[in-house]
Amino acid sequence: MRIAVLGAGGVGGYFGARLAAAGADVTFVARGRHLDALQRQGLLVRSPLGDVRTPPARAVAQVGELGPTDLVLLAVKLWDTEEAAAQLAPLADRGTAVLSLQNGVHKDSVLRRHLPEQNILGGACFIAAHIEEPGVVTHTGTLQKMVFGPYHPDRRPLAEELLAACRAAGIEAEISDDIAQVIWQKFVFLVGLSATTTAVRRPIGTIRDNPRTRTLLRDIMAETVAVARASGIALDETFPDDRLAFIDTLPPDMTSSMHHDLERGNRLELPWLSGGVADLAAELGLAAPRNQTVADILAPYTLGTPKD
């Protein structure tokens, strides 16, 4: 299977490098100094599960430079989804499938504006990883999982092939027959993790150990579950407590990509996370005051650290 990874950051870089190290045919689409490093020395992934490095030169600057491709793993930031989807349309016309590993619940709706439904696989991933420096991705902790599933039954064989490739690479993976529910389940956790670690500016251990921020974390996830249920997703009302119990098992130093972006002065995915929950809640006639407050607190940082 010929795989392209569009967005070689923490998520795309980690999973792409693992697949490449196991023998998959992987090409990265990257830019800037990160692209230069990948072309000169390959991509190094530092991980408690073992470091891996891809061969040099398996990286290009543009989607148009890719050869025949069976599957694109899409891992760009959410604000780049529209542009990425438009660039992928010619590949999809030739049969290439696209699997988004991005955050949020808006991503596949954007893809559908540019790509045929049968070319889209739904997906979610669970990992804490980020670019440490150009050409280097650091994986924090041991959590690294992909869940995916086709929206169209004709793509089931491709999903099975990807599953086999993931397992050969030591990536925990599974196929879901209700991938929309999985995406929302992940979204509940992600919104809670990103909102609290970014607003408080501390890792999850600090959040869950303090009674007031623990309550904040649960409330944020409960609001997200309410939006999911109103959107027709079958999540139980007790799901926030399930996710809170899961969060108690995470390494205390685990944080979120949005927290990393805030610390580095980068643009935030806030409008698609807590901001997205607040917007969807308003459309559905629901209240989401905790998510709205987080979105308001972080609003000045949405496009990066504000200049004084």
Rank of each mutant, 00 (worst) to 15 (best):
V5M: 07
G7M: 09
A8T: 05
Y14W: 11
G16R: 07
G16N: 14
A17V: 10
R18E: 08
R18N: 06
A20W: 03
A20S: 14
T27V: 15
F28A: 12
H34C: 11
L38Q: 02
Q41R: 15
L43V: 09
S47Q: 08
S47L: 06
P48A: 13
V52P: 13
V60S: 03
A61Q: 10
G67V: 09
T69N: 00
A75S: 15
V76M: 04
V76G: 05
L78Q: 15
E82V: 04
E83T: 13
Q87C: 09
A89F: 02
P90M: 03
R94L: 10
T96K: 02
A97D: 02
L99I: 00
G104K: 07
D108Y: 04
V110C: 02
H114E: 07
E117D: 14
Q118D: 13
N119K: 13
L121P: 01
L121G: 02
F126A: 09
A128V: 10
E133Q: 13
G135C: 08
V137D: 06
T138F: 05
H139S: 11
K145Q: 14
V147S: 03
P150R: 01
Y151N: 06
P153D: 10
L158G: 03
A159N: 01
L163G: 09
A164D: 11
A165E: 14
C166G: 13
R167T: 13
E174V: 07
E174M: 10
S176P: 05
D178R: 00
A180K: 00
I183K: 01
V188Y: 07
V191L: 07
A195S: 15
T196G: 00
T198A: 13
V200H: 03
R201A: 13
P203Q: 08
D209G: 13
N210H: 15
R214K: 11
T215D: 10
R218H: 14
R229Y: 03
S231L: 05
D236Y: 00
D236P: 02
P240E: 11
F246L: 15
P252Q: 10
M254S: 11
S256P: 12
S256T: 12
M258Y: 12
H259F: 08
D261A: 14
L268R: 10
S274N: 15
S274L: 04
S274T: 12
G275I: 07
A278C: 07
A282F: 00
P289M: 06
P289K: 03
R290E: 13
N291M: 04
N291I: 09
T293I: 05
D296S: 11
A299V: 02
T302M: 10
L303F: 05
P306T: 09
